[in-house]
């Protein structure tokens, strides 16, 4: 006789046992300082080697295909150029923010150059995705072994991707900016209004709320991280402002934000392990 027999009595006991197991799992699933419970950690660990294997196979297949086509040299050149391009894009992003800051401070007598934030970056490869579209998450192939901890910002040279919400020994889970639980303090770059919040809508889009009613923001302006929350360094591009609308109360505006990063086509990301925020100039009055 097996565990699953058809008597109603056994069925009721089985359902009761299932409910009990569910309760225990919920209790053991309580998260620790790295955002994971014992059971969750075990489940995630069981997938990590396989997911890393698949990612390696995919990469290997790509390299094999390239060799077969005799394009290995071209591929190397392309990789070098891409790396350079990424580096320049990052620099450009910081410079753009810096430029805006310089323009803002130019009139001040005690102006001094602010130091641009320096990032301690860790590159990681994406090895897994959320099993459904209710949650917008990704799994990367590096974890606590590489010094990663909760809430570290995740970026690409194009802009903000999200932050770490669970960190395992060898993997970590990234909560994407498009998840409905995500909210990031933002500045509209040309107007410098810094009370905005960009939040995920849950369907792959972003929305910026809390824009002052007097804002001169326009379609096409960039929304960047404000740095107010201290989770994200200031000046990281979030996306492009689209379709600004007045809220029903008339006091604030909201806008759609087109993410700067194509989150469906990501393969590698950069995790900011630490960053230095530029010192605010003394007596600047802004």
């Amino acid at each position: 006789m097996g565990l699953f027999t058809t008597s109603k009595k056994k069925g009721a006991w089985t359902l009761l046992l299932t409910a009990l197991i569910l309760l225990l799992v919920v209790k053991w699933g309580s998260s620790d300082s790295l955002g994971l419970g014992v059971v969750e950690r075990w489940v995630r660990n069981s997938y990590a080697p396989l997911q890393k294997g698949v990612a390696s196979v995919q990469q290997g297949l790509g390299q094999f295909g390239t060799r077969v086509l005799g394009l290995q040299d071209l591929k190397q050149l392309l990789q070098t150029e891409q790396a350079l391009n990424q580096q320049l894009s990052l620099e450009n992003m910081r410079l753009r923010e810096s430029q805006a800051e310089v323009e803002r401070l130019r009139g001040l007598l005690d102006y001094r150059n602010a130091q641009i934030g320096q990032f301690d970056l860790e590159a990681a490869r994406i090895i897994g995705h959320a099993p459904n579209n209710w949650y917008r998450t990704m799994t990367v192939d590096k974890g606590a072994d590489y010094g990663l901890t909760l809430n570290m910002p995740v970026i690409t040279p194009d802009g903000l991707v999200g932050k770490l919400i669970n960190v395992n020994r060898s993997t970590a889970q990234v909560l994407l900016i498009t998840d409905r639980e995500m909210a990031v303090g933002a500045i509209i770059q040309p107007t410098r209004e810094n009370r905005g919040i960009v939040e995920g809508v849950g369907d792959g889009r972003l929305r910026m709320i809390n824009i002052p009613y007097y804002s001169q923001a326009q379609d096409g302006d960039l929304a960047v991280t404000s740095g107010i929350s201290q989770t994200y360094p200031p000046g990281i591009t979030i996306g492009t402002i689209r379709d600004i609308q007045k809220e029903a109360n008339g006091l604030v505006l909201s806008a759609s934000v087109e993410p700067a990063v194509n989150l469906d086509r990501l393969e590698e990301v950069l995790i900011i392990k630490s960053f230095q925020v530029a010192e605010a100039p003394a007596n600047q009055g802004v």
């Binding site: 699953f4 069925g11 299932t18 799992v25 959320a130 099993p131 949650y135």
Partner: peptide
């Protein structure tokens, strides 16, 4: 049996998602 299996699979998915 289906409900038990469904709950078990659902827990597994929930634990993976964290």
């Amino acid at each position: 049996k289906g409900a038990v299996y469904g709950v078990a699979c659902g827990i597994w998915e929930d634990l993976y998602q964290g």
